[in-house]
Design a protein around this nucleic acid. Structure first.
Length: 585
RNA sequence: GGGCCAUUAGCUCAGUGGAUAGAGCAACCGCCUUCUAAGCGGUUGGUCGCUGGUUCGAGUCCAGCAUGGCCCGCCA
């Protein structure tokens, strides 16, 4: 099915041809949802812009277009307003038929795209032996949401976890491991290293303070890169333990990811250097091999190079990213490469993409997109830290969210003298707490800096996940109370909209497809959040004004259909945000 | 010094060149004998950082300025 807006656009193309000739057929009708419900559902803003080229008044142009618009099957007769707006209101008959159509459709009337792409989403990407923190949380949540939306629309998605499992920091980690915990390196010892974060801190401290340790660490990097078995075993042990910790977080957050760390691309780094050299892009500079990029300068105003190979022969992450990019295009057959990485790396990606472009590695039709997000700040506006200045552990953060959700729930249960099994309380608290964390992040424009506040994200009123979960729960409550099997409403049932609140809700339900298409293209999850928040608001208004179970037939069944479609829309939308729904709360 | 991003109500934020700039929170006033009140309705609250420009029309586009954040050579 084509979205409503797409259908109306086609009709405008026809009307433009009939009114002004085929040259004007491709004029953008500038169709948008109305700025105010009193103007109908959609407004076309093209008449004003056509006034000059057509040498006629905007209102005359609008009138001419309206004369040729064939929209009777979709809309009431169009109205011309103000300087020349063409206002369109979906007809009641169309509205009702579209709701029923979505109702009967397993995907709510949304078909898969006709030309699926191979979309590669690079997200999360924590560093081995380091704590996952709020920055990773943003990448993880936003990346997962974008992947879910692409998948739902029928694209073939590869979710890649580009973990930091390689690089010079492993020298100190391996050395520290060998010196403090050698028994862990024995085959099948099954020994853990303990707290990896403390382990990392100790290693870093020694690296900074003990010159001899630093020296041994440098040697360990060389050992690792040359495949020394003992260094390799230590590296594997570190990676394994980190992986287990990451997995717990991913499982809890319901995130699916394919781990393919930086080390995976080691075998392809040499080819990057050779190809760049063969094309004459590579230059020697202060002992390193670099590509000078265009449009970037350093502090002295000199051209800024991308370092491809260090003077000691080692490689940097730019080289790894180039190798990864080549692999993702040639082996993974990616059409659209998305990098969900913080905005601080904008320059890095712009440079890497430029090098890849100039090297001719980007075939026509393949797009590279850095999907940046803002830094996470504490309530003081500074980088988010605990009071003592420590990085906040992701696990602690999630635990606190869940604990607060539980406390809110228990307080409410006590107030209402409700008795619920402990297991249910735990389960609700977990869902609500995690949903609150995810939603707080996704509901903001990702490019802004994100002010992290437990109090605000866990406030259970307003534009929050619990508000939407609650709307969903209310609908399930109707079904429980009335013994309604939503999946088996009478097949003869028809939608009969009467109250204003019903119309408002129905009109909003039809906009889902448009919103998902926008998110898939523009990659702003907050658009979907906004849609779901407004849907919940409109449902709550309907719920407040229109009784469902006590309404006479056929209104009762009609309202059940509306409620059910709302529930399915909420469930689908929240699911695409990575948020699970609840039957009761 | 250069680059990128931001600046909208007391606070946190939406806003696709279009009509009278919107939410949420906070504050205040109402609404539970009726499907869960984690709800609904109402009131108060704006020089869209500043100055110019483009346009029939600018919070939105362009230029300059101010403030803040992030980045700028062998870490990732």
């Amino acid at each position: 099915m084509t979205s409503i807006i797409a259908q109306i656009k086609d009709r405008f193309a026809q009307a433009l041809t009939l009114a002004f000739g085929p040259d004007w057929a491709s004029t953008d009708p500038l169709l948008a949802p109305t700025s105010n419900p009193k103007f109908g559902d959609y407004q076309a803003n093209l008449a004003m812009g056509l006034a000059r080229p057509l040498q006629r008044s905007p209102r005359a142009i609008a009138a001419e277009l309206v004369n040729h618009l064939q929209l009777a099957d979709l809309c009431d007769p169009p109205e011309i307003a103000g300087p020349g707006f063409i206002n369109l209101r979906l007809s009641v008959a169309y509205l009702q038929s579209q709701i029923q159509r979505r109702q009967a459709h397993p995907r709510l009337g949304i078909n898969c795209v006709s030309q699926p792409q191979r979309v590669i989403v690079d997200f999360s990407s924590p560093n081995i032996a380091k704590e996952m923190h709020v920055g990773h949380l943003r990448s993880t949540i936003i990346g997962d949401c974008l992947a879910r939306v692409q998948e739902f629309l029928g694209h073939s998605v590869l979710r890649l976890n580009h973990v930091g499992d390689w690089g010079t920091q492993f020298g100190m980690l391996i050395t520290h491991l060998q010196e403090t915990c050698p028994q862990a390196l024995e085959a099948d010892s099954g020994m853990g290293i303990g707290d990896l974060v403390n382990f990392y801190k100790q290693a870093k401290q020694r690296f900074d303070q003990e010159p001899e340790f630093k020296q041994r660490s440098r040697q360990a990097v060389v050992d690792l890169q040359s495949g020394n078995p003992r260094a390799t075993r230590a590296w594997q042990l570190l990676c394994k333990q980190s992986r287990q910790e990451f997995e717990q977080i991913y499982r809890r957050l319901d995130i699916t990811l394919e781990e393919r760390g930086e080390s995976f691309y080691n075998a392809y780094l040499g080819a990057v250097v050779e190809d760049l050299a063969a094309q004459g892009l590579l230059q020697e500079n202060e002992g390193a091999r670099v590509v000078f990029t265009q449009g970037f300068t350093n502090k002295e105003g000199l051209p800024l190079p991308v370092i491809i190979q260090k003077s000691d022969g080692g490689y940097n992450y730019a080289t790894t990213d180039l190798a990864a990019l080549r692999y993702r295009i040639s082996q993974d057959r990616g059409d659209r490469l998305l990098y969900v990485v913080d905005a601080g790396q904008s320059t890095h990606f712009a440079q890497v993409f430029q090098v890849a472009e100039r090297a001719g590695w980007i075939p026509a039709g393949v797009t590279l997109t850095h999907v940046p997000f803002g830094v996470v700040q504490g309530e003081d506006g500074k980088k988010f830290k605990t009071r003592s200045g420590e990085t906040v552990r992701l696990k602690d953060l999630l635990d606190e969210a869940v604990a607060r959700a539980r406390a809110d729930l228990e307080q409410r249960l006590a107030l209402e003298a409700r008795q619920e099994p402990q297991e249910l309380i735990e389960s609700i608290a977990e869902t609500v707490g995690l949903a609150a964390v995810k939603y707080a992040d996704l509901s903001q424009n990702r490019t802004s800096n994100y002010l992290f506040s437990f109090d605000k994200m866990l406030a259970l009123q307003g534009n929050t996940a619990p508000y939407m979960l609650y709307a969903y729960v209310r609908i399930q409550g109707i079904s429980r109370k009335g013994n309604i099997d939503f999946d088996h409403l009478p097949p003869t049932a028809t939608l009969q909209l009467q109250e204003e609140a019903e119309f408002t809700l129905a009109r909003h339900l039809l906009q889902l497809e448009q919103v998902l298409e926008e998110v898939a293209i523009d990659l702003y999850p907050n658009q979907l959040c906004l849609y779901l928040f407004e849907l919940s608001q409109k449902f709550n208004q309907f719920y407040d004004l229109c009784t469902v179970l006590q309404a006479p037939e056929p209104q009762r069944t009609s309202r059940l259909m509306l409620a059910h479609l709302t529930a399915r829309t909420l469930k689908l939308g929240l699911n695409l945000l990575g948020i699970a729904v609840l039957e009761r709360m």
